[in-house]
Each structure stands twice: as structure tokens, then as C-alpha cells.
């Protein structure tokens, strides 16, 4: 595996490696040794459509694939709020789970009911 960029999740400081040709979510799944990371950044559609892997990039260079405007507005994108499944790093990155994220996974009343159990 080619040397990747170092991706650090703030504030916990957990880190993983991601190459320039893979997206953050793919790298996160490949690592597989960081359940805390996977718990923090859910894996949804992996196509920029569902919005569950919303993160904020605090520092670093990256490029993105197209993301649903319902979940990432132009202002979000400018401010570094993106979907992990569409982010390709071009330097080391410091990321955080988007604090304002309204995660659609937890919005389902069916799931809420099951979780209340």
C-alpha cells in the first residue's frame, strides 16, 4: 500500500491513513481497527447521497466528488463541511464529526423506538 496522508479525528486524536485515490470513508472501513472512528462516522450510501457521514475538515487540502445539495450546501462546502465518502485527501487532514449533523439514521421513529427498546 502506497504511503497515504495522515487523517486525524479531533478532538480524540485518533488517526488513520488515506491515499489520494481513495475517499476518507473507504480508508476508514479498510483500517477496521478503529471502531471508535466507525462509530463516530456512520457508513451510509457511500455515494454522496444520504448525508450520514457528514464531517468538518478543520485543516488540510482535499478534493471532493459531487455531494447532495440537500445535505451539503455551497456554504457548507466552502466552510469545509463535507461528506466523508466524497473526500479525497491531498495532504494530511484534521477532521471532526460535524457538530451540527442531524444524522438521518437516528431520525427514524422506527429506530428510535427500537433503541428505546
Amino acid at each position: 500500500m502506497a504511503e497515504g496522508h495522515r487523517i486525524t479525528l479531533a478532538p480524540e486524536g485518533l488517526a488513520f491513513s488515506c491515499g489520494e485515490e481513495e475517499n476518507l470513508l473507504q480508508a476508514l472501513q479498510r483500517v477496521g481497527v478503529a471502531p471508535a472512528l466507525l462509530a463516530a462516522i456512520p457508513v451510509g450510501c457511500r455515494g454522496g447521497g444520504c448525508g450520514v457521514c457528514r464531517i468538518h475538515v478543520r485543516a488540510g487540502e482535499y478534493r471532493t466528488g459531487r455531494m447532495s445539495r440537500k445535505h451539503i450546501s455551497e456554504a457548507d462546502e466552502t466552510a469545509g463541511t463535507v461528506l466523508a465518502c466524497r473526500v479525497f485527501p491531498e495532504s494530511d487532514l484534521e477532521i471532526e464529526v460535524d457538530p451540527s449533523a442531524a444524522n438521518p439514521i437516528t431520525r427514524s421513529p422506527t429506530i428510535a423506538k427500537q433503541q428505546r427498546g
Partner: peptide, 11 residues
Amino acid sequence: QLNERFLGVVT
């Protein structure tokens, strides 16, 4: 087993 992604992820 329920699966959160199946139940909650939509477009």
C-alpha cells in the same frame, strides 16, 4: 437483526 443503515439511510 435490525440494521440502522437499512432503516435510516434514504435519498
